[in-house]
Design a protein around this nucleic acid. Structure first.
Lengths: 255, 255
DNA sequence: GCAAAAGTGTTCATCGTACACCCATGG
DNA sequence: CCATGGGTGTACGATGAACACTTTTGC
């Protein structure tokens, strides 16, 4: 309510800056974990703000003058965590700009949604690097996060779940080479255990289109043995992740 | 690349404002039109900016100091067009913030996606009201619009098309009372003519769930006659527009 | 009568999924 | 041996969609 001088609209030659632009990134990955339900994890950092002492926050930066939002998101990943994700899936999630969401003034934060491969998680801690931590999404959703980051996180999780059904983003969460059981684990840990009830043969059948269109090809190799039983064959995905609206996967809604 | 003074991050007590926050609204409605394909229309205004002289633009305002983004969108509708939409469907679409999208400085624009009922289009032109115009979407998509508004528009159209399939937003585009053929016209003009190939009995069957869950009820009245043939029965929709992920409608992808 | 709206029923192909098998491989 | 990965085929139920036919209503 301060600064109430009548704002004139478009048409003004010089306009006063009235907000700070920030970018927050919700970075997901799938990693090994004792509990299979905790495989889906999100990158959180220690909040630097005194008010939120102790709370975790999403990775965020202020947007610099000549920078696009995507560039700012990339900069956050590289310089703040030292993460080396040569390619990642990045997509805008939404903008949070409640007048009072930051006590220091008007901060509009554009949230991004990102997926990184689990084999590109060579976290390189350096001097300027923040304390970054992979937290199982299941836990993160119950945590009190800084600012309105809890809202962003739950929006991101919802987006991930729905994108899993009509696009191939799952492959962006797997290493370059993976087995069918790996793929199955990603779907069952994100969409939910219902997929685990599916017969293994039916699961593979759901990807039949991908196999004969040649975007999902066996490498010929076989995974190293990781327990008893036959090791899985390795596959490689080489296709667009983008969601077409063809019904690409069954198991739309199960409970 | 100018203004490269190292920007310190969150943790700073006072931070300089570095962007102007704007809200642009892509307002859709369905109205009568000679060509049935032109029924879906979008609200455009004469661009006030000299550089874009002659080009049309989306309805937009700058966000005021104490205001939420949704409030700004509502203010744009009311005060700039005099439109009386007592209730409308409003949803955030995305944020455009390319450094050079506005020559006057950094303007981050949050685009909204809105649907108003055709019977609430009592446009009340007043003194402070802009020249607003309903333009068929089919034409608007081919026009050169101001700023990056063409991108926003096509994103909004894509969003509308996909939401039509898994939610009931179609009813937000119809008057309070409507006939089944009206409903059918909305689907066929937005999704595309393919729906018109459907048998009328099959079309109604697609909404069977709505009928026996009682959210789509006949008013008992009958529409005024508008040609030869029997006038359609009137219906009223009283349910949430929100999209659940149940497969709510068939005809997912046709060509 | 004609045309559009509305209602009822049938048929057919497709598809998701359960299930019953089979073999291969490594501990 | 056993557990896991991988492969093949079948059967059943659900459903989207085409089609045929009838009835109602207003010009």
């Amino acid at each position: 309510m301060k600064d109430r001088r009548e704002q004139r609209d478009i048409g003004e030659r010089a306009i006063a800056h009235n907000a700070v632009l920030a970018v927050d990134v919700v970075i997901f990955t799938v990693r090994e974990s004792e509990d299979p339900d905790d495989r889906l994890q999100v990158l959180l950092v220690k909040s630097e703000k005194a008010v939120f002492e102790g709370r975790m926050a999403l990775l965020g930066v202020l947007v610099q003058t000549g920078e696009t939002l995507e560039q700012a998101a990339g900069r956050a990943l590289r310089t703040k965590t030292g993460l080396d994700a040569s390619q990642w899936y990045l997509e805008q999630l939404g903008t949070w700009a409640e007048p009072e969401r930051d006590t220091r003034g008007r901060v509009a934060s554009v949230a991004y949604f990102a997926l990184v491969r689990s084999d590109q998680l060579t976290l390189v801690p350096g001097s300027t690097v923040l304390q970054a931590e992979w937290v199982p999404v299941r836990h993160a959703l119950k945590m009190k996060l800084a600012f309105d980051h809890a809202d962003m996180l739950s929006a991101a999780v919802a987006r991930l779940r729905s994108k899993m059904r009509y696009s191939w983003v799952a492959f962006q969460l797997l290493p370059e080479e993976f087995t069918i059981p790996d793929l199955r684990a990603v779907y069952s840990s994100i969409l939910d255990p219902s997929v685990a009830r599916l017969n293994s043969s039916n699961f593979k059948r759901a990807f039949a289109n991908l196999f004969d269109s040649g975007v999902l090809v066996p490498t010929g190799e076989r995974a190293g043995t990781q327990g008893r039983g036959r090791p899985g064959d390795l596959y490689r995905f080489s296709g667009p992740l983008a969601g077409t609206w063809e019904r690409e996967l069954p198991w739309h809604n199960r409970r």
